[in-house]
Protein backbone atom coordinates (compact mmCIF):
# COMPACT_ATOMS: atom_id res chain seq x y z
CA UNK A 1 0.00 0.00 0.00
CA UNK A 2 1.30 3.45 -0.83
CA UNK A 3 1.67 5.76 2.09
CA UNK A 4 -1.15 8.28 2.12
CA UNK A 5 0.08 11.77 2.69
CA UNK A 6 -2.43 12.20 5.43
CA UNK A 7 -2.19 12.45 9.17
CA UNK A 8 -5.23 11.87 11.30
CA UNK A 9 -5.26 14.47 14.05
CA UNK A 10 -8.82 14.18 15.33
CA UNK A 11 -8.74 10.86 17.18
CA UNK A 12 -11.04 10.23 20.10
CA UNK A 13 -10.07 7.24 22.24
CA UNK A 14 -11.91 5.45 25.01
CA UNK A 15 -10.28 7.88 27.44
CA UNK A 16 -13.04 10.22 26.35
CA UNK A 17 -15.57 8.50 28.57
CA UNK A 18 -18.44 6.89 26.61
CA UNK A 19 -17.41 8.69 23.43
CA UNK A 20 -14.49 6.84 21.94
CA UNK A 21 -14.83 3.21 21.01
CA UNK A 22 -11.19 2.11 20.78
CA UNK A 23 -8.12 1.98 22.96
CA UNK A 24 -5.23 4.34 22.08
CA UNK A 25 -3.04 1.25 21.46
CA UNK A 26 -5.47 -0.01 18.84
CA UNK A 27 -5.09 3.26 16.95
CA UNK A 28 -1.31 2.91 16.96
CA UNK A 29 -1.55 -0.56 15.46
CA UNK A 30 -4.14 0.49 12.90
CA UNK A 31 -1.99 3.47 11.84
CA UNK A 32 0.93 1.09 11.44
CA UNK A 33 -1.13 -1.28 9.30
CA UNK A 34 -2.43 1.54 7.12
CA UNK A 35 0.95 3.25 6.97
CA UNK A 36 -0.27 6.58 8.25
CA UNK A 37 2.74 8.79 9.05
CA UNK A 38 1.32 10.60 12.07
CA UNK A 39 -1.67 10.36 14.41
CA UNK A 40 -2.90 12.93 16.87
CA UNK A 41 -4.72 11.76 19.97
CA UNK A 42 -7.13 14.44 21.11
CA UNK A 43 -9.45 13.27 23.86
CA UNK A 44 -12.19 15.29 25.46
CA UNK A 45 -10.52 17.57 28.00
CA UNK A 46 -7.85 15.05 28.91
CA UNK A 47 -4.35 13.91 28.04
CA UNK A 48 -4.74 10.54 29.74
CA UNK A 49 -4.93 8.50 26.55
CA UNK A 50 -1.64 9.59 25.05
CA UNK A 51 0.40 7.67 27.62
CA UNK A 52 -0.83 4.30 26.40
CA UNK A 53 -0.34 5.27 22.79
CA UNK A 54 3.21 6.41 23.53
CA UNK A 55 4.08 3.19 25.36
CA UNK A 56 2.69 1.13 22.50
CA UNK A 57 5.22 2.58 20.09
CA UNK A 58 7.82 0.36 21.83
CA UNK A 59 5.85 -2.75 20.81
CA UNK A 60 7.77 -4.74 18.18
CA UNK A 61 4.58 -5.54 16.30
CA UNK A 62 4.18 -1.90 15.34
CA UNK A 63 6.18 -1.97 12.12
CA UNK A 64 5.51 1.50 10.79
CA UNK A 65 5.85 3.66 13.83
CA UNK A 66 3.59 6.67 13.34
CA UNK A 67 4.66 9.99 14.74
CA UNK A 68 2.52 10.57 17.79
CA UNK A 69 1.03 14.02 18.24
CA UNK A 70 -0.03 14.82 21.77
CA UNK A 71 -3.04 17.01 22.29
CA UNK A 72 -6.52 17.36 23.65
CA UNK A 73 -9.95 18.31 22.41
CA UNK A 74 -11.19 21.20 24.49
CA UNK A 75 -14.96 21.02 24.94
CA UNK A 76 -16.44 24.21 26.25
CA UNK A 77 -19.40 24.76 28.52
CA UNK A 78 -20.32 28.07 26.90
CA UNK A 79 -21.41 26.70 23.52
CA UNK A 80 -18.21 27.40 21.63
CA UNK A 81 -17.44 24.64 19.09
CA UNK A 82 -14.70 22.19 20.14
CA UNK A 83 -11.08 23.15 19.57
CA UNK A 84 -8.25 20.66 19.14
CA UNK A 85 -5.18 21.88 20.99
CA UNK A 86 -1.70 20.59 20.14
CA UNK A 87 1.14 22.18 22.11
CA UNK A 88 4.21 22.94 20.02
CA UNK A 89 6.78 22.68 22.79
CA UNK A 90 7.28 21.69 26.40
CA UNK A 91 6.23 25.10 27.72
CA UNK A 92 3.00 25.05 25.73
CA UNK A 93 2.34 21.51 27.00
CA UNK A 94 2.56 22.90 30.50
CA UNK A 95 0.05 25.58 29.68
CA UNK A 96 -2.34 23.00 28.24
CA UNK A 97 -2.07 21.02 31.47
CA UNK A 98 -2.70 24.16 33.47
CA UNK A 99 -5.78 24.85 31.37
CA UNK A 100 -7.14 21.34 31.95
CA UNK A 101 -6.38 21.56 35.67
CA UNK A 102 -8.35 24.76 35.92
CA UNK A 103 -11.26 23.14 34.10
CA UNK A 104 -11.31 20.15 36.41
CA UNK A 105 -10.48 21.77 39.74
CA UNK A 106 -12.26 25.06 39.37
CA UNK A 107 -10.98 28.23 40.96
CA UNK A 108 -11.10 29.34 44.58
CA UNK A 109 -14.75 30.32 44.35
CA UNK A 110 -16.44 27.41 42.56
CA UNK A 111 -15.67 23.74 42.97
CA UNK A 112 -16.15 21.37 40.09
CA UNK A 113 -17.70 17.92 40.52
CA UNK A 114 -15.31 15.05 39.92
CA UNK A 115 -15.37 13.91 36.33
CA UNK A 116 -16.56 17.21 35.00
CA UNK A 117 -14.58 19.90 33.29
CA UNK A 118 -15.81 23.44 33.04
CA UNK A 119 -13.91 25.53 30.55
CA UNK A 120 -14.96 28.72 28.83
CA UNK A 121 -13.57 30.06 25.60
CA UNK A 122 -11.78 32.84 27.53
CA UNK A 123 -9.81 30.18 29.47
CA UNK A 124 -8.41 28.78 26.25
CA UNK A 125 -7.41 32.23 25.01
CA UNK A 126 -5.53 32.78 28.27
CA UNK A 127 -3.41 29.63 27.82
CA UNK A 128 -3.12 29.72 24.03
CA UNK A 129 0.51 30.77 23.78
CA UNK A 130 2.53 28.29 21.73
CA UNK A 131 -0.47 26.09 20.95
CA UNK A 132 -1.57 24.81 17.53
CA UNK A 133 -5.34 25.26 17.46
CA UNK A 134 -7.83 23.50 15.17
CA UNK A 135 -11.44 24.61 15.29
CA UNK A 136 -13.93 21.81 14.59
CA UNK A 137 -17.48 22.59 13.64
CA UNK A 138 -20.61 20.46 13.98
CA UNK A 139 -22.69 19.34 10.99
CA UNK A 140 -24.79 22.47 11.10
CA UNK A 141 -22.98 25.53 12.27
CA UNK A 142 -23.47 29.24 12.61
CA UNK A 143 -20.93 30.95 10.26
CA UNK A 144 -21.03 34.24 12.15
CA UNK A 145 -20.15 32.57 15.44
CA UNK A 146 -17.46 30.45 13.78
CA UNK A 147 -15.93 33.56 12.18
CA UNK A 148 -15.91 35.31 15.53
CA UNK A 149 -14.19 32.35 17.23
CA UNK A 150 -11.60 32.10 14.46
CA UNK A 151 -10.86 35.81 14.69
CA UNK A 152 -10.34 35.57 18.43
CA UNK A 153 -8.11 32.50 18.07
CA UNK A 154 -6.03 34.31 15.48
CA UNK A 155 -5.87 37.34 17.72
CA UNK A 156 -4.50 35.24 20.59
CA UNK A 157 -0.85 34.23 21.02
CA UNK A 158 -1.43 30.82 19.45
CA UNK A 159 1.32 29.40 17.25
CA UNK A 160 -1.15 28.48 14.49
CA UNK A 161 -4.89 28.31 13.78
CA UNK A 162 -6.68 25.93 11.39
CA UNK A 163 -10.25 25.13 10.53
CA UNK A 164 -11.03 21.41 10.50
CA UNK A 165 -12.80 20.08 7.44
CA UNK A 166 -14.37 16.65 7.69
CA UNK A 167 -16.89 14.60 5.80
CA UNK A 168 -19.96 13.81 7.85
CA UNK A 169 -21.75 11.72 5.19
CA UNK A 170 -25.11 13.35 5.68
CA UNK A 171 -25.56 14.00 1.99
CA UNK A 172 -24.61 17.66 1.98
CA UNK A 173 -20.85 17.30 2.41
CA UNK A 174 -20.01 19.28 -0.69
CA UNK A 175 -22.11 22.23 0.30
CA UNK A 176 -20.73 22.05 3.82
CA UNK A 177 -17.17 21.91 2.53
CA UNK A 178 -17.87 24.91 0.30
CA UNK A 179 -19.19 26.81 3.30
CA UNK A 180 -16.15 25.82 5.35
CA UNK A 181 -13.93 26.95 2.51
CA UNK A 182 -15.69 30.32 2.38
CA UNK A 183 -15.29 30.63 6.09
CA UNK A 184 -11.60 29.77 5.97
CA UNK A 185 -10.97 32.27 3.18
CA UNK A 186 -12.79 35.05 5.02
CA UNK A 187 -11.03 34.33 8.29
CA UNK A 188 -7.70 33.79 6.50
CA UNK A 189 -7.02 30.46 8.17
CA UNK A 190 -6.05 27.28 6.30
CA UNK A 191 -8.37 24.26 6.14
CA UNK A 192 -7.15 21.03 7.71
CA UNK A 193 -8.53 17.63 6.77
CA UNK A 194 -9.56 15.30 9.56
CA UNK A 195 -11.98 12.42 9.95
CA UNK A 196 -12.85 13.02 13.61
CA UNK A 197 -12.28 9.34 14.31
CA UNK A 198 -14.27 7.60 17.04
CA UNK A 199 -13.08 4.02 16.61
CA UNK A 200 -10.21 2.34 14.83
CA UNK A 201 -12.03 -0.30 12.78
CA UNK A 202 -15.54 -0.59 11.24
CA UNK A 203 -16.12 -3.70 13.36
CA UNK A 204 -16.27 -1.45 16.40
CA UNK A 205 -19.52 0.21 15.32
CA UNK A 206 -21.83 -1.91 17.51
CA UNK A 207 -19.66 -1.10 20.53
CA UNK A 208 -19.74 2.58 19.62
CA UNK A 209 -23.54 2.50 19.30
CA UNK A 210 -23.89 0.84 22.68
CA UNK A 211 -21.63 3.48 24.22
CA UNK A 212 -23.86 6.15 22.72
CA UNK A 213 -26.89 4.48 24.25
CA UNK A 214 -25.27 4.38 27.68
CA UNK A 215 -24.27 8.02 27.38
CA UNK A 216 -27.77 9.06 26.35
CA UNK A 217 -29.28 6.76 29.00
CA UNK A 218 -31.32 4.97 26.38
CA UNK A 219 -31.59 1.52 24.83
CA UNK A 220 -30.57 0.46 21.37
CA UNK A 221 -34.20 -0.01 20.34
CA UNK A 222 -35.31 3.36 21.64
CA UNK A 223 -32.36 5.52 20.63
CA UNK A 224 -33.59 6.07 17.09
CA UNK A 225 -32.00 8.93 15.24
CA UNK A 226 -29.86 10.05 18.15
CA UNK A 227 -27.37 7.45 17.11
CA UNK A 228 -24.90 8.52 14.49
CA UNK A 229 -25.93 5.83 12.05
CA UNK A 230 -24.71 7.91 9.17
CA UNK A 231 -21.25 8.32 10.62
CA UNK A 232 -18.46 6.33 9.17
CA UNK A 233 -15.53 7.98 10.85
CA UNK A 234 -13.92 4.62 11.02
CA UNK A 235 -10.49 3.59 10.11
CA UNK A 236 -8.10 6.36 9.46
CA UNK A 237 -7.77 5.22 5.88
CA UNK A 238 -10.74 6.66 4.07
CA UNK A 239 -8.99 9.30 2.06
Amino acid sequence: MTTPAYAEIGITTNFSFLRGGSDPRAYVHQASILGIPAIGIADHNTLAGVVRAYKELDNDKVLHKPKLLIGARIVFVDGTPDVLVYPRDRAAYGRLCQLLTRGKRGDDITRIEKGECHLAFADLLEFSEGQLLVLTLPHRFDPAQALDVLAKLKGSRAAGVWLAASLVYRGDDRRRLARLDDLATTAKVPLLATNEVLYHHPGRRPLQDVLTCIREKSTIDAIGRNISAARSTTSCARR
Partner: peptide, 25 residues
Protein backbone atom coordinates in the same frame (compact mmCIF):
# COMPACT_ATOMS: atom_id res chain seq x y z
CA UNK B 1 -24.50 15.15 -7.81
CA UNK B 2 -24.81 15.60 -4.12
CA UNK B 3 -23.75 13.09 -1.55
CA UNK B 4 -22.93 10.64 -0.27
CA UNK B 5 -25.32 10.30 2.60
CA UNK B 6 -24.03 7.24 4.34
CA UNK B 7 -26.60 5.05 6.07
CA UNK B 8 -25.36 2.07 7.97
CA UNK B 9 -28.03 -0.55 8.67
CA UNK B 10 -29.22 -1.12 12.20
CA UNK B 11 -27.15 -4.10 13.29
CA UNK B 12 -29.44 -4.81 16.24
CA UNK B 13 -32.43 -5.40 13.99
CA UNK B 14 -33.38 -8.75 12.47
CA UNK B 15 -32.21 -7.72 9.03
CA UNK B 16 -29.20 -5.86 10.39
CA UNK B 17 -26.75 -7.84 8.31
CA UNK B 18 -27.51 -5.59 5.36
CA UNK B 19 -24.80 -3.51 3.81
CA UNK B 20 -23.98 0.09 4.42
CA UNK B 21 -25.50 2.33 1.79
CA UNK B 22 -24.21 5.53 0.25
CA UNK B 23 -27.07 7.63 -1.09
CA UNK B 24 -26.64 10.28 -3.79
CA UNK B 25 -29.00 12.87 -5.12
Amino acid sequence: VEGPERIAMEWWQQDGKQLTRDYFR
